[in-house]
Amino acid sequence: MNLSSLNFFSTLLGNNRQFAVIGLGRFGRAVCQTLHNLGYEVLGIDNNQRLVDQALHDGVVAHALQLDSTEPSALEEASIADFDTVIVAIGNYIQESIITTLNLKEAKVPHVVAKASSEIHGKLLERVGADLVVFPEREMGCQLARALTKPRILDRFELDPDNSIVEVVVPERFDNKTLADLDLRRNYGISVLAIGADQKFQINPQPQQKLVKGQIMVVIGSNRDIDRLPV
């Protein structure tokens, strides 16, 4: 699972330096790997010793423990309250996920992120105190659908459910026209943040800037307006 293009990591506190991930399945390992690659120290936790050993062997975590996260005393022994953010990646085991999240909040963990497998699961996690509930399968499904229907959109950063910043290939209709000619804000409701070519970006391009078919535009706007851009 590739999490690099999800907005999951943008929701984590930017000045955190220590993370714990409970549940070392595919989602949990992907979180550990990405945080590790970003230079953060990660503690991996699972009740399956094989998954713990595998995470250590593969180097996706700095430390790993085998314990039952539904037991408050086990979390206390692991000094879980010392971590800024704990990600509950159990997901498919709803009871264990909810109890673990409750235990973490009762242990005064500042920021608890929990994976949900359904809307009801998500609501229950919020009820027991999860600071953020994520639906990775749903987000990946939405991303896939957009990639299939909007192939010119190369990457997307969701600011919220309704607005995004996206990288989009300049369409043929915009070729050899200036930003002033196109007046994208009036005609499409979007603003151009940058124009890229040859792996270099020009930030805040001037109205006289000409676009060339195949270049990259970085634009900001509502998802509805972005989807109106020509293919």
Rank of each mutant, 00 (worst) to 15 (best):
L211D: 01
E139S: 13
Y188K: 12
F135T: 08
S222A: 10
R173N: 04
G196I: 07
S191E: 14
Q208W: 07
V113P: 10
F174E: 06
V168Q: 06
I190P: 07
E172P: 06
I195F: 01
D131T: 01
R152Y: 14
V109S: 05
L144K: 02
A145F: 11
S118T: 15
E158H: 12
R173C: 07
L179I: 14
R138K: 12
L211H: 06
T149R: 03
R146I: 08
I153G: 10
Q208K: 14
V212D: 01
F157C: 05
T178Y: 03
E119G: 04
P207S: 00
A147K: 15
V192T: 14
D175R: 04
T178W: 11
A145D: 03
S117V: 15
Y188W: 11
V218D: 03
E167S: 03
I195C: 04
N187P: 03
I120R: 07
I203A: 03
G214F: 09
R173F: 10
M217W: 07
Q209T: 13
K177D: 05
F174C: 04
G221K: 05
A116C: 12
D181S: 02
P161G: 11
K213W: 08
V192H: 06
R173D: 10
A197D: 06
N204E: 13
S191H: 11
P171K: 09
R152L: 12
I190C: 00
N176L: 13
H121G: 03
A180Y: 11
K108E: 14
K210L: 13
L144C: 01
